[in-house]
């Protein structure tokens, strides 16, 4: 039976990519609309700055230290719950921004002549790891809250920052226009802290 594995693996691969393609065909209209979203966001002046501040505040201990010393336990619970919701929403927004930039890059790359297979592969892998890490972070925060998982969140965010840097560098080489959009729409400081 072991000799069957490579053939079953190849057949499963074919089935998986076909299923993904079918899904993409059905969602094609939706994704066309979404690609335009980051440009609208970038056009609104103050939104980027507030997004940066928000990320920085969500994962800082300042607020929690104040709440934990000056308020009753009910308020503390409420604070943790609300902070968790905000953190998840912020991470989802960050993930969405990156995926929109990636989609825009792919749409542009489809018509570009000068594509390098190795760079494209690195970009795809970086993006995949970035998405997985974001999902892991969301899961951690959802399960244990933003304060309890602060250490894990910090470590994962550092990896996310490193990945984002690598992603940005690659994108700058392949697609400078999209890289600019990415720089203006993603929080640098929050992850560093």
């Amino acid at each position: 039976m072991r000799q069957l594995l490579p053939y079953l693996g190849v057949a499963s691969l074919l089935l998986a990519v076909t299923a993904l393609w079918v899904r993409q065909i059905f969602l094609a209209h939706k994704s066309r609309i979404e690609v335009q979203v980051p440009r609208k966001g970038g056009a609104r002046g103050g939104s980027t700055a507030s997004h940066d501040d928000l990320g920085e505040r969500i994962f800082s201990l300042e607020d929690w230290e104040f709440v934990s010393t000056n308020t009753p336990s009910q308020i503390q619970k409420m604070f943790l719950h609300e902070r968790g919701v905000i953190a998840i929403s912020w991470l989802r927004r960050t993930r969405m921004r990156i995926s929109l930039v990636m989609r825009a890059h792919l749409a542009a790359a489809g018509q570009t002549e000068n594509l390098h297979p190795a760079t494209e592969l690195k970009l795809a892998l970086n993006y995949l790891v970035f998405r997985v890490l974001c999902d892991v972070l969301i899961g951690c925060i959802w399960l244990r809250g933003p304060i309890r998982t602060r250490k894990t969140v910090g470590q994962t965010l550092r990896t996310v920052v490193w990945l984002r840097g690598a992603f940005e560098q690659l994108l700058a080489r392949v697609d400078p226009a999209n890289c600019k959009t990415l720089r203006t729409s993603f929080n640098h400081r929050a992850a560093r802290n």
Partner: peptide, 16 residues
């Protein structure tokens, strides 16, 4: 099957 999976993956990934 490998060749077909390759072309389908490229078409889907770059939304051709």
């Amino acid at each position: 099957a490998i060749l077909l999976a390759g072309v389908i993956a490229l078409v889907a990934y770059y939304a051709v």
